[in-house]
């Protein structure tokens, strides 16, 4: 009985993950400020590298992951995959905002300008951000939950494929003005590379923890809504108010449909 009231266990391991994230971030900050040496050219300003670049990498990987989860949703028609894709893209957008702000601060300190339009890496990241900024309005524009989930998945797959293509195009065409990370990590001194990798790991942990929090909160809300409907005598399939958030109260019905479809 207890198990059936928490069928997906989104909240499982959340406490451990939260503690691990806090410890990882504390270790990262210690390494950044007290272990990693000062860079010869930029000096103390280069410390922004340890927050800006991991934020950008995690955000871009999150967008791609959102696309992969959307593929899974289209394959199975299970709304849980749509919810995961939605949450991952939502969180990646927040990380992308952080990337843009920290990047602007770094640009101001390094180049004297908040934004440089001639820099392809900056502009391409902004394009990706603006592309994904249309994801939520797209969802909100479609009232029917199933159609909304399907269209959003198609968008997530297309945009997710655009991210690595865009990254490659920029790398091939750039004049190498922007600090290169993936190509030059081997050129970093060992202490800098270690700090960077730890920072990347802690950002990934933070991303995972926040996604799990979001999934747990959304699932709890949807369970509460379902319970309210049941208590007020409303039918479970009654139309819900328009929302950009995926409808997962129909999970049981959709899972049944998916299993019936998979039977030959």
């Amino acid at each position: 009985m207890e198990r059936s009231s928490r069928p997906f266990g989104y909240g499982n391991g959340l406490r451990t993950l939260s503690i691990a994230t806090v410890i990882a971030i504390a270790v990262t900050l210690s390494l950044v400020f007290f272990y990693a040496p000062l860079e010869a050219e930029q000096g103390f300003l280069q410390k922004i590298f340890y927050v800006h670049v991991p934020l950008a990498i995690v955000a871009l990987c999150g967008f791609v992951l959102g696309g992969l989860l959307a593929i899974q949703h289209l394959r199975t028609r299970d709304p849980r995959w749509d919810m995961r894709s939605y949450v991952v893209i939502h969180m990646s957008l927040i990380f992308a905002v952080g990337t843009l702000i920290t990047g602007s601060i770094w640009a101001k300190g390094s180049w004297g300008h908040w934004w440089v339009w001639s820099e392809p890496t900056l502009v391409s990241f902004l394009i990706i951000f603006l592309l994904y900024a249309t994801y939520q309005p797209l969802r909100f524009a479609i009232e029917d939950p199933e159609r909304q989930a399907r269209y959003a998945s198609v968008f997530a797959i297309t945009a997710g494929a655009f991210v690595p293509l865009n990254f490659l195009a920029v790398r091939l065409s750039t004049e190498y003005l922007h600090p290169r990370v993936l190509g030059s990590t081997s050129n970093l001194p060992g202490s800098m590379a270690l700090t960077f990798l730890v920072s990347l790991g802690s950002m990934s942990l933070l991303f995972t923890t926040l996604c799990k929090y979001e999934l747990t909160a959304k699932h709890t809300r949807s369970q509460l809504r379902a319970l309210r409907r049941r208590l007020s005598g409303e039918h479970a399939d009654a139309p819900r108010a328009r929302s950009a958030v995926p409808a997962i109260q129909h999970v049981a019905a959709a899972s049944t449909r998916a299993s019936v479809r998979s039977v030959p």
């Binding site: 000096g43 410390k47 933070l206």
Partner: peptide, 27 residues
């Protein structure tokens, strides 16, 4: 602990890290 060489870059570095904490705090 060694003193951090803040100089003029200190405010930018502090700004970048405060942004990260602000995002987490708002969340």
């Amino acid at each position: 602990t060694p003193a951090l060489p803040l100089h003029t870059a200190g405010k930018y570095v502090a700004g970048a890290y405060i942004v990260l904490f602000a995002i987490v705090l708002i969340y």
